[in-house]
Amino acid sequence: SPTSAGVEIEHLTQNVLKSYRETCQLRAEDLQLRRWDTFSREEVCAYQRKPMEEMWQRCAGRITEAIQYVVEFAKRLRGFMDLCQNDQIVLLKAGAMEVVLVRMCRAFNADNRTVFFEGKYAGAELFRSLGCHELISSIFDFAQSLCALHFSESEVALFSALVLVNANRPWLQDQAKVARLQGHLDVAFRVLLRRTRREGLLARLPPPGRLRALCSQHVEQLQAFRRLHPGVLHAAFPPLYRELFA
């Protein structure tokens, strides 16, 4: 009946919000409080002087930490653990980095184009020694464009659940089951937007291709780094990072 469907959707929404709150890594209030706490010129120079391998290793470490929270988010999402293991892995392998990029907009200060990194806010120039200027610029541009949407915490929660539960990912075994869950999350998102008079957001969301392109760009840069520094990836990068991207 329409009523019980409504109750179901409300339960799902509450589950997504709770799962997100429990796994958001950094609280929005804390990020907000520290948004003008930027690295000093000397600190930026110290990062810029780091060898490329060390900077890559640091960034891989921070990405891996963020991904572990996304895995916990997925595990708490109602219905996710009912999918077969193949599909859980397919969705995480394809979507974890995309969710990290979406979550990053919370840790981004669009007023001075800085992102929270290792305890303070950092501009794109801090990442210079990575040797992938274009990728960093694209990620900063993406964060800037998401910030312009003024996402609420509930919107980030539901949007990231939808980025993760995507029935169009290749290699799914039970695509219909993923599509059902995706459909319920989609309804939950639309109900939330209607309730908060934010339906206009739907037309302004980034197209899925944009997230996919950023993730491919990351993998391409990793391959280029690997050619320059053979062996470093295996010796010094987190195993989960290697498993997902190498």
Binding site: V71, E72, Q85, I89, L240, E243
Partner: peptide, 16 residues
């Protein structure tokens, strides 16, 4: 599955 050993392990470790 062997290729995704760590992801597997993380998924199987209860809701920690």
């Amino acid at each position: 599955q062997e290729k995704h050993r760590i992801l597997h392990k993380l998924l199987q470790n209860g809701n920690s």
